[in-house]
Nucleic acid binder design. Structure first.
Lengths: 154, 154
DNA sequence: GTTAATGCAAAGCATTTGCACACGT
DNA sequence: ACGTGTGCAAATGCTTTGCATTAAC
């Protein structure tokens, strides 16, 4: 009998097929393998970790393909990318607790000081074994400058 | 008469001096200039933006110095760095709303599903002109694996 | 005068791109 | 068969490092 994890895993595989079809994307072995690798772990692997996972089974896959397929997954909504938008470090002279507003259009990061957000505590029992030291909330959206502008592609 | 911004700015300059002294760090013109540039803006500049700002005044500064000084500032606590810890993108097949636990020791990212954190709304009037579309909380701390290990320098 | 900080150029990584070949439909 | 997807290798962009020179204390 299949357990819950296995069942949800099958669901996700099915979902991949559906989403690929509806976006006119080919269901290549690489995409399947990369999806399986990603869906079977919950620790947010890097491109290289996914590459390692699949290259055991798929001889001769390219790291480039992993990069491309993962970005494809993000664009069709079956995966999420966690990183700073432009892979550039940003610095801040304000060391007090505060949160961030990131504009998805221009990449600008604004501060949000709001004491009502400064004492969040995850519910007991929800936390995997982990000692929390600090936290920060990143709100994503559109800044006033970008809202006014007509969308320019690229 | 000095306004509030100017006053807090002077305070911060003084603070830089104090912190540098107490850490045995020299108060170079580069460090002063980089600190001033950083403290005078609230939009989280990139290294290059800081570099542009200071190179107007300081002829012949090196980008390398900006990199090094900003990291120094982070290590003595006068600045904060905003970016993914290892400058590697991470991916996730879980597209439902959830939050993250990032281990500062090993860089691993774990999921935190907790409905009590899923309906945060910044207090009215606190938000700069900005349309919020989504948000995510990143908790930083030590994962169970790293807690057990003795700290190994590297 | 010492020691730490800077500037330069070269090296390191993660990621992207151009193009020919291979595969899915 | 057609067009998209992949693999390879080279290019790009951000960041770091080694080493000689310069400046702070």
């Amino acid at each position: 009998m299949k357990n819950d994890l296995q069942r949800s895993y099958d669901l996700k595989r099915k979902e991949l097929e559906t989403v690929c079809r509806s976006n006119g994307l080919a269901l290549t072995i690489q995409r399947r393998a990369i999806f399986d690798a990603l869906a079977s772990r919950t620790d947010h692997p890097t491109v290289d970790q996914v590459y390692e996972d699949i290259s055991e089974k798929l001889k001769g896959v390219s790291r480039t393909t992993v990069y491309r397929v993962l970005e494809t997954f993000v664009s069709i909504g079956v995966a999420t990318k966690i990183s700073n938008p432009e892979s550039k470090a940003r610095f801040d002279a304000d060391t007090k607790r505060h949160h961030h507003l990131t504009c998805i259009a221009c990449g600008k990061v604004l501060d949000l000081h709001d004491p009502t957000l400064d004492n969040l505590v995850p519910r007991e029992g929800k936390i995997p074994d982990f000692d929390i030291l600090d936290y920060s909330i990143t709100f994503t959206g559109i800044c006033s400058g970008c809202r006014k502008k007509p969308l320019n592609k690229h």
